[in-house]
Every structure is written in C-alpha cells, then in structure tokens.
Design a protein around this nucleic acid. Structure first.
Lengths: 145, 145
DNA sequence: AGCGGGTGTAATGTCAATTATTACAACAAG
DNA sequence: CTTGTTGTAATAATTGACATTACACCCGCT
C-alpha cells in the first residue's frame, strides 16, 4: 500500500497557509476548498501539525498560521507529524513465521536490520527537503503562469 | 499505510528455497508452513516471482527453485516483482486539488519531483542489498543456535 | 491409463484502514 | 449574544489486504 495522502495534503496545507497568509484568513474551509477534501480532514491534520509544533490554530476567530521558519520544517517532520505510516515502520512484516522452522525463527532478526537501513535512507532524503523549497518553487510556478 | 507484507514474505520464500533446496522438495505447502500463511498466497507470490524471472516453479511434480544467482537478486527486484505498492508510486497523492486555486493547480508539479527523489533514495538502498546477504546471514544465525 | 501430490487461478469472505460526512459543543471577537 | 470557526465524536462508504475454498489442470509413477 501507499503512504497515506495525509502526507501530501499536509504539505499542500502548509504551502497554502504561507502563500495566502497576507491576503486571506486561512480557515479549514478555505483549505478544504483548495485541496478538495472535507474540512474535518483538514482540522484533524491541523491538530496533528499543531501537536508537532509546526502550526498554530486559532480557535474562535479562526485561521491557521505556521509556527516556525519554513526552512526549519523538513518533509520528515511533516511525515512524522501526520502519522503517514503505522508504528513508525515502513514495512509490514508478516506476523507469525513458524518458530519450528530454522528460517522462520531467524528471518526477523536478519531482515529487521535491512529494512531499517532502507527506511533510514528514505527518511534521510526526506530530512533534506524543506517546506521552504516547496513554497518557493510553487510561487515560481504561479508567477510564470 | 505500510508496504505490503508480500515483500517480506517473498524474501522469506527465497530464503527458504535456498536453505532447504538440498533436503526437501520445497512446495507451496512447505513454504506456507514456515511462513504461516495460506498456500495460495505463496503460489500467487511464486507466480509473480516467476514472471520476474527470479524463480522457476515446477508444475505437476511440484516444487520451486531459484532461477538465477542469489547475488544477482536485489531487494529492489523482489520489491518490484511482488507489487509491494500500487502504480509504482510510494506516495498517495490526493487526487483532486482545486484547479481554480493557484496552489491547487501547481502543487502536483512541484511535489512530484520531490516525492520521486525520496522514492529513488529508497529504491537505491534496496538495490544495494542482495538476497545472498540475507541467505548468508540467516545461515549464520541458524548455525549459532 | 489412471492415481496422487502438486500447481494455477477464480470466487468469495473477512477485516482493517482511509476518507467522507454529519452533528454539535466549545470558543473568541465584534 | 450572535456569528463564524475550531475540536472531536460517531457513523458510513470504500477500498485493499489477506485468508480460504474449490476445482481444473498438470506430470511422474506404477
């Protein structure tokens, strides 16, 4: 299965907040309009991003803002904040290898290392990309329209 | 969501085939016993591995064997063979960003590059690990028991 | 030739996760 | 105290993963 669209939606959310922060009050309804999902989905994601210290959400009067410099927010931060995968493990290991079988009882030990190695490579790449790059490139695209 | 357990099961299959090739006829039932899944799951995976040229499956008398040197089979080969993810894309992009919104109609262009970059990092790491390493380490674990 | 163990595959069922949606209490500002 | 908004629970629809049954087909053996 693929990594949840919560991840790309969260990136879209942050990009919108920054892009429109001076011209609009960026509410969950506003964001839902650009992303084309239900506002409740946005609110839940905003809660998760808030818990990670990435955004502030203004209750009552409404709106969301980004809580720290864009250059300090990496893809990995977002990825982790919105629980893109379960238990933090990218791979779903088959649960019950047979302990009676020599391979069955050892495969987990051998594979876990390798799977971690792969996942780490992915996470390192994520850490190297900031939301600032995304926002800047998006602005460039918009200007060129 | 996580990457399907088909991936780890396929690795388990190959490890078993090699480990037991001299002592048993390695049938789908035999493999199902070590992995603890239904034999039909094994047969479907064997078909996919066969389509990728990784194994031969002997119809009639039964059994499976590995079709090429272990050192030439990488994690990436297996990963691709068993369709661990859909459409080859690790990330599920939210489908319908609003084309009326400047961010909505450009985010796909910007993000696709970055997502590919991340996925490529993962795939490169997968390419660097061969099933031979897995088999050898597993044998080492078994001997030390 | 036919038996028996095995594969290939379709059909069906179950379960869990994702996403959508409704509903409403809590809240803040005018 | 009204209005627009957030926070969150409850529920449903959809989808995909995995399990399982069933059975035709295949091939070596006697």
């Amino acid at each position: 299965m693929q990594i949840s669209s919560r991840f790309t939606i969260a990136i879209h959310i942050l990009t919108c907040i920054d892009t429109f922060k001076d011209d609009y009050k960026v509410t969950s309804d506003f964001l839902a309009g650009s992303i084309n999902v239900n506002p409740v989905v946005i609110r839940r994601l905003l809660q998760q991003l808030k818990a990670a210290g990435i955004v502030n959400v203004i209750r009552g009067s409404g709106g969301a803002e980004i809580a720290k410099p864009l250059s300090e927010i990496t893809m990995l931060d977002i990825y982790k904040a919105v629980d893109s995968i379960e238990n933090g493990s990218l791979f779903h290991f088959h649960e019950n290898p047979n302990k009676e079988c020599p391979v069955g009882r050892n495969i987990h030990n051998v594979l876990d290392d390798k799977l971690n190695q792969i996942q780490t490579a992915m996470e390192n790449e994520m850490r190297s990309i900031t939301i600032q790059e995304i926002v800047e490139e998006t602005k460039k695209y918009i200007q060129e329209e």
